[in-house]
């Protein structure tokens, strides 16, 4: 079983590395989008699925990372690579500030205050024409030549997301990750055995915000644009749908969910403009029949003994 899984993983990596050799440019672009949305969904799942924190407006950090990098690239003379590092740091800082305000509340109230704060950030970016370009956003951001082509951007996205997935995975397997999941399952008991619940949750939020910012930077590289809709709450819902679709309590689930959503949107929207109708119906069916998501369902069905909920 283990060796089979390992062979599968190697095959997957080789497929991803060789993908630009066999597929046309458009598909390489789609693959890059899948990677970065996968990272965004994974960073959300880090706090939502594994941390049990109702992070309703996750895209704020995605947008903050993207805008941070885009502004560094267009308004300052620093090297673009500095901008790529500044973006996620801005997102992490924003995550810390928002987290400090929200962390006192729990569950639905946390989510609602977070949406409110996120909408505030959205409104500021939406209206600050002189800095952010307002509702037009910023277009035609010039990125370094090395990663400007579709293939270059794809490989950049592949390396960065691969590294990020690895780090997130390691964090989840570390003592910190175990404590985080313990807090999700029983916050009171965790508190009793001497865990500082709020501090752990805050740290998780900052880590998650950082990786959302990384995803935002990747969007700047892949698409060379930023726009305020990246921070609108409907996108946050969509990212939550990615997590749900793939499976909350699995590591690979959100990536699978992101792939499904991006592919659905790309291919259905070539046939009809009503792709949201289709997505809505698919989602309703999933919630009715597969509440643990696609991957969660298969895990439950084929590996009942190995299933550890969390």
């Amino acid at each position: 079983m283990v060796t089979k899984g390992r062979i599968g993983a190697y095959a997957g990596i080789i497929f991803l590395l060789a993908l630009p050799l066999f597929f046309p440019r458009f598909y390489v672009y789609i693959a890059s989008l899948i990677l970065l949305y996968g990272l965004l969904a994974t960073s959300l799942n880090f706090v939502l699925g594994f941390g049990g924190i109702y992070q309703f407006h996750h895209c704020v950090f995605y947008g903050a990372g993207a805008y941070g990098a885009a502004l560094m690239l267009t308004k300052t003379g620093f090297s673009p690579w500095v901008g790529f590092i500044v973006g996620p740091l801005v997102a992490a800082l924003l995550s810390l500030i928002l987290g400090l305000i929200c962390i006192r509340l729990s569950k639905l109230y946390f989510g609602m205050l977070q949406i409110s704060l996120g909408s505030l950030v959205w409104a500021v970016i939406y209206r600050w024409y002189s800095l952010t370009g307002g509702d037009d956003g910023i277009h035609g951001i010039s990125v370094p030549d090395m990663i400007a082509s579709a293939n270059g951007a794809y490989y950049f996205a592949l390396i960065v997301t691969g590294l990020s997935f690895f780090i997130i995975f390691k964090i989840l397997k570390s003592p910190f990750g175990s404590v985080l999941q313990g807090i999700r399952d029983n916050p009171i008991r965790s508190e009793m055995i001497g865990v500082n619940v709020k501090r752990h949750q805050l740290a998780a939020l900052v880590i998650s915000g950082f990786f959302a910012g990384v995803a935002g930077v990747l969007f700047v590289v892949v698409d060379t644009t930023v726009f305020p809709d990246m921070l609108f709450w409907t996108l946050s819902m969509e990212v939550m749908i990615m997590c749900l679709l793939g499976g909350w309590f699995t590591f690979m689930g959100p990536i699978l969910g992101a792939a499904l959503i991006v592919l659905l949107r790309t291919f259905i929207s070539t046939y009809t403009v009503y792709w949201a109708l289709f997505l809505g119906i698919v989602l309703m069916i999933i919630i009715f029949f597969l509440p643990n998501g696609v991957l969660g369902y298969f895990q439950e069905k084929f590996r009942p003994k190995k299933l550890v909920k969390g």
């Binding site: 639905l108 939550m240 109708l277 919630i287």
Partner: peptide, 25 residues
């Protein structure tokens, strides 16, 4: 669905809002 978690209900109602949005279109 009354017994489901809030987050599921939010996503479910969001799904309906997607459907309604397109139906209006």
């Amino acid at each position: 669905l009354y017994e489901r978690e809030h987050i599921m209900l939010i996503l479910f109602t969001f799904a309906i809002s997607l459907v309604f949005g397109d139906l209006v279109k």
